[in-house]
Simulated assay, not measured.
Amino acid sequence: MEVSKREEEYLETMYLLHKNKGVIRVKDIAKMMKVKPPSVVDALKKLSEKGLVEYEKYDRILLTEKGREIAEKTYAKHQLLTKFFVEILGIPPEVAEQDACQFEHYVHEITVKRMKEFAEFVQSQCPYVIKQFVKGKLEERGE
């Protein structure tokens, strides 16, 4: 089944809402994604047709097992990318967060796996070098 990048974003948003608030509501999805509620409803209908969410108008919204799997995978990529950008590349956290949000939908699983392996290797073998690199980037930004 083909899931678009935008649908991944919706699933990830719903996953985070459920994780943090215990409930998924149209208005909260709209607020987090900076879209209008009718756009959320349209997306929910499509995701429901694909079997990724359980949604009935004016009823609760739930991720199905498959929807949750996709959301968890997307969120795990997001976290890894953010951490890599901040800890290895010295990118400011707010920029790293934005970039990870975009990058997570386009990067292949193999690339994410290799980035993780590289980060672990560098951090275990050359922690001083990484600290010096990141420190230099922070100083360049005046932090």
Rank of each mutant, 00 (worst) to 15 (best):
E69V: 08
A71D: 04
K77P: 08
L47T: 00
K116T: 09
T74A: 15
P38Q: 02
F103G: 04
V129L: 14
Y55R: 01
R114N: 07
K116W: 03
L47R: 00
I110A: 09
E69A: 15
D99P: 03
V122C: 03
K77R: 14
V122H: 05
V86G: 05
K113C: 03
L16D: 04
A30P: 02
L138C: 09
E7N: 03
V26F: 01
E49K: 13
M32P: 06
K27H: 10
M14D: 05
M14T: 05
L47G: 01
I61S: 09
K131M: 13
I91M: 15
P127Y: 02
A71N: 05
T13E: 13
T13R: 06
K45W: 01
E109F: 09
R68C: 08
K21T: 07
K57Q: 11
E87Q: 11
G67P: 02
K19C: 06
V41H: 01
E9I: 14
E139T: 07
K31L: 11
N20Q: 13
P37G: 09
L138P: 03
V112A: 08
D59K: 15
E12L: 15
Y75N: 08
K131I: 12
T111W: 00
V23W: 02
K50M: 06
K45D: 12
T111E: 05
D59Y: 10
G22L: 10
I61A: 09
K73I: 11
S4Y: 04
R68H: 04
G90M: 06
I110T: 07
K113Y: 10
Q79T: 08
K135E: 05
E69T: 09
I70K: 06
K36W: 01
E139P: 04
I24Q: 03
F103H: 07
I91N: 04
K34L: 14
E109D: 15
H108M: 04
F121K: 13
T82V: 15
M14S: 04
K5V: 15
S39T: 08
L52E: 00
P37S: 03
A100T: 08
A76H: 05
H18Q: 12
Y106L: 11
V40D: 01
H108K: 07
D99F: 12
R114H: 10
L81S: 07
M33C: 10
V112H: 00
P38E: 01
K45R: 10
R68W: 07
A100V: 14
